[in-house]
Simulated scan of single mutants.
Amino acid sequence: MNIMFQKTNQRMFGTFPLKGDTLRAAVAAAIDAGYRAFDTAQAYGNEADTGLALAESGIPRDELCITTKVTVENFSQERFMPSVEQSLQDLKLDRVDILLLHWPTPGGDIRLSLELLQDAQERGFASTVGISNYTAAMMRQAKQIASVPLVTNQVEFHPLLDQRKLLAAANETGIPLSSYCSVARGEVFKHPLFAEIGAAYGKSAAQVVLRWILQKGLPINTMSTKPDNIRSNFDVMDFTLSSIDMGRIDAMNAVGYRVVGKRLIPYAPDFDV
């Protein structure tokens, strides 16, 4: 089974943009809520804080699923492997469970970064590898280049953004999607539909959105610093949205709201929508 789709890993706690004591308190609350999967990245500047927080938790290593991502500035022969070794040192690990390329290589030539990613896995630095923010066309290219399984393409995925092209590419290539910005950094709460549907299930608007993502077949990645919200985001496995409600939420794709694009990341690719 794909490591991300194991029951304990379908709900991942994201660490961006947390640092220091705030991050450590949030991770402790997430551990207490039941989270065992944690997501960080070189670009977040918090791998050392994340490593310390997880070490302090006392949770056995084999119960944790830890993801980090290599930043584009390190996509070179000279910098890639030293950067991964530094990530492992900061995280206090001899390997991560999932190592991702944080973005496609600017300019579109993705071969070298994928080859370096595979090399990192072959060296034992990562149990599995994957990609992030790849377009559908790039997913097809990656499938042709990679000689090892790519366990995910981590992308922005929430009800306010139509990602049907990426879902189709995932089915075609066998590279599953996973979700970040799962509640569109709060934008979903401006739309009353989610709270309205939640009322029928005794669930919050956020829980409805997260459950919709899970039922679309994607693991979710959420972040909060509030213990009640951390626990609420985790408690989304005890109800199932009806096909009618799934369809009502699907229709919200027409809003076309994207959080992460060239405005925030100048080297972001031209996304499919």
Results as ranks from 00 to 15, higher is better:
residue 3 I to K: 03
residue 11 R to P: 00
residue 235 D to P: 03
residue 125 F to M: 06
residue 227 P to Y: 15
residue 133 N to L: 04
residue 58 G to P: 08
residue 246 M to A: 14
residue 107 G to V: 04
residue 219 P to D: 13
residue 248 R to K: 15
residue 162 D to C: 06
residue 253 N to P: 02
residue 54 L to I: 14
residue 177 L to R: 03
residue 244 I to D: 15
residue 185 R to N: 07
residue 161 L to I: 12
residue 158 H to G: 00
residue 135 T to M: 09
residue 141 Q to M: 12
residue 210 L to F: 15
residue 238 D to G: 13
residue 46 N to K: 03
residue 12 M to I: 15
residue 66 I to Y: 14
residue 166 L to R: 01
residue 137 A to L: 12
residue 20 G to T: 09
residue 55 A to L: 05
residue 21 D to T: 14
residue 123 R to K: 13
residue 41 A to D: 08
residue 223 M to Q: 09
residue 16 F to A: 07
residue 12 M to K: 08
residue 8 T to N: 07
residue 218 L to R: 06
residue 214 L to P: 12
residue 95 R to D: 03
residue 230 I to F: 12
residue 29 A to K: 05
residue 268 A to T: 01
residue 196 E to V: 09
residue 66 I to P: 14
residue 241 L to H: 15
residue 217 G to E: 04
residue 252 M to A: 15
residue 51 G to Q: 10
residue 199 A to V: 08
residue 208 V to S: 11
residue 131 I to T: 08
residue 154 Q to S: 04
residue 84 V to K: 07
residue 140 R to L: 08
residue 158 H to W: 02
residue 16 F to E: 02
residue 130 G to P: 00
residue 154 Q to A: 02
residue 198 G to Q: 04
residue 18 L to R: 00
residue 240 T to R: 10
residue 175 I to H: 08
residue 105 T to V: 09
residue 177 L to T: 01
residue 61 R to K: 15
residue 33 A to I: 11
residue 159 P to W: 04
residue 13 F to Y: 09
residue 15 T to S: 08
residue 163 Q to N: 13
residue 156 E to V: 14
residue 156 E to I: 14
residue 196 E to H: 11
residue 205 A to S: 13
residue 95 R to Q: 13
residue 213 I to R: 10
residue 61 R to L: 14
residue 175 I to K: 09
residue 269 P to C: 00
residue 257 Y to R: 12
residue 87 S to V: 01
residue 11 R to G: 01
residue 242 S to R: 06
residue 75 F to N: 01
residue 215 Q to E: 15
residue 87 S to R: 01
residue 132 S to M: 09
residue 184 A to I: 08
residue 3 I to N: 01
residue 193 L to M: 05
residue 138 M to I: 09
residue 120 A to C: 06
residue 9 N to V: 04
residue 218 L to A: 15
residue 122 E to F: 13
residue 93 L to K: 00
residue 14 G to R: 05
residue 82 P to G: 02
residue 61 R to N: 15
residue 37 A to I: 10
residue 207 Q to F: 04
residue 265 I to V: 15
residue 104 P to Y: 07
residue 126 A to T: 05
residue 201 Y to A: 00
residue 93 L to P: 02
residue 32 D to V: 03
residue 147 S to N: 10
residue 127 S to A: 11
residue 180 Y to K: 06
residue 38 F to C: 12
residue 241 L to N: 10
residue 134 Y to V: 04
residue 235 D to G: 08
residue 158 H to A: 01
residue 197 I to R: 00
residue 216 K to C: 08
residue 230 I to P: 05
residue 202 G to I: 10
residue 112 L to E: 13
residue 101 L to M: 12
residue 152 T to L: 05
residue 129 V to N: 05
residue 218 L to Y: 02
residue 173 T to S: 04
residue 187 E to Q: 14
residue 122 E to W: 12
residue 3 I to P: 00
residue 130 G to C: 03
residue 34 G to Q: 09
residue 17 P to Q: 12
